[in-house]
Amino acid sequence: MTVKELTSSPSLATLYPKAALGGLRKTTGDTLPDTEYVRGGVIVDPAHLAAYDHVCGFRLTDELPATYPHVLAFPLQMALMTEPDFPFPLLGMVHVANRITQHRPVRLDERFTLRVRAENLRPHDKGTQFDVVSELLPELDATDTPVWTDVSTYLRRGGESGSSPEKRTELAPPSPSAVWTVPGDVGRRYAQVSGDRNPIHLHRLTARAFGFRSAIAHGMWTKARCLAAFEGRLPDAYTVDVRFQVPVFLPAKVAFTTWSTGEDGWSFELWHARKPKPHLRGTITA
C-alpha cells in the first residue's frame, strides 16, 4: 500500500473545484487505489467542537461525540476520492450507509493520527458500492490500535451488478418518541462546521440544479442528531450503524423513534413526520 503522509489538512477550497472537474470524466476503472492518506498531529479546536455540538444537538463536554471525528477525516476522504486514479468521479456518488465504532471515549485534549483508505469494491443492485475507512489513533500509543473507526459506504449508480435487491423491512411503526423541527438553514450551518459544502445541502436553487426540489440535510447531520438523543445512555465503547434512506428536504418536521434491543443496545429510525417514509435507520450496539 502506498502511504501519503500529510502535515496539514487538505484544502477543501482546492478540492471542491477538483471534484467538479472530475465530474466531467467517465468511470476510469474497476479497481480502488491502494493508497492510504495519513495525517499526524491532529488536535481538536475547542471552539470548533462547541460549534459542532451546537448544530447537532450535543451537550458541551470534554469528550468528542462519536460522529465528530468524521468531520476531521472528511478533507482526507475528499483528497483520496478526487485523485486521478480514483475510479469514480465524486459528483454523483451517494452516501448510503455509515458505521462508526468508538472503542473508548475520545477526549478533547488528545493528539491523534488520522488514516483514510478505500476498500471493498462490490456490486450493488443499482450499481457499484465501496467503503471509505477512516481511523483515529492516539499519537502516544505504540500499539497502532484505532480508538475510533468510521466506515462510509458510497454507491456509484449505473451498470448491471447482478446482485439481488436489498430487502427493505420495516423495523418499527412510525410511532415517534419525539418530533423535531429541522430549520431550513441547517444545511448551511452544518456545512460551516463540517466543511461539506455540497450545493445540494446549501440552498433551494443550488439543490434544484442537481434535481432536488429543495436543499436536503446532510446524512451525517441526521445521524449526529439521532445520536445526540442518546446522550447519557451510551456505553464507553459502542458501534452506531445507520443506513440513509429518503432525504430530509429542508425545512422539515421529522419523527424520531427508538426502542431497546437488549443491554446497552437500541434501534432507531427517523421518519417524515406526516408520511411513513424513513429518512434513516440505525442501531447502537455495545
Rank of each mutant, 00 (worst) to 15 (best):
E231G: 06
V116W: 04
G22V: 00
R208D: 07
H95C: 00
T7A: 14
P17M: 05
Q192W: 14
A237P: 08
R115T: 00
L250H: 05
R111M: 07
T101D: 05
A217S: 08
L171H: 13
T153F: 03
F256G: 06
L227H: 10
L6D: 04
D185L: 02
D141E: 07
G57A: 03
T14A: 15
A224V: 03
A191P: 04
A207L: 05
P173M: 10
G232Q: 13
F86D: 08
I216L: 11
A255P: 01
R122S: 01
G29T: 00
V106H: 12
V38M: 14
A228W: 06
Y238C: 01
I216V: 15
Q129I: 06
A273W: 05
V182T: 09
K18M: 14
S214C: 08
G159P: 08
V193I: 01
G158S: 11
G282A: 02
H48A: 15
S194K: 06
L202F: 07
E63T: 10
A229Y: 12
L155H: 05
L270A: 08
P278L: 01
E110V: 00
R225V: 05
T239R: 07
N98T: 01
T285P: 07
P235T: 06
H124L: 04
W180A: 14
K18W: 13
F112Y: 12
S214G: 11
R188K: 14
L76F: 08
T35L: 15
T285Y: 13
P10H: 12
S134P: 07
S11W: 10
T143C: 10
A178W: 15
W266S: 09
A215W: 11
D241I: 03
H272F: 09
E166C: 15
F130T: 03
T285N: 14
A79V: 03
P173L: 10
P87R: 09
W271G: 07
R188Y: 10
K253M: 06
I200H: 07
L234A: 08
L49Y: 11
L108A: 08
P17V: 02
P75H: 12
T61E: 09
C226G: 02
T35S: 15
R189V: 00
E119A: 10
T101R: 14
T101L: 07
F212D: 01
A209P: 03
Q245D: 12
T149C: 04
G41A: 05
W266F: 11
P278G: 06
L250A: 02
D53I: 04
S9R: 14
T27N: 13
L250C: 01
D144K: 13
S134I: 04
P235A: 03
T181F: 09
P65S: 02
Q77H: 15
A97N: 00
K275R: 12
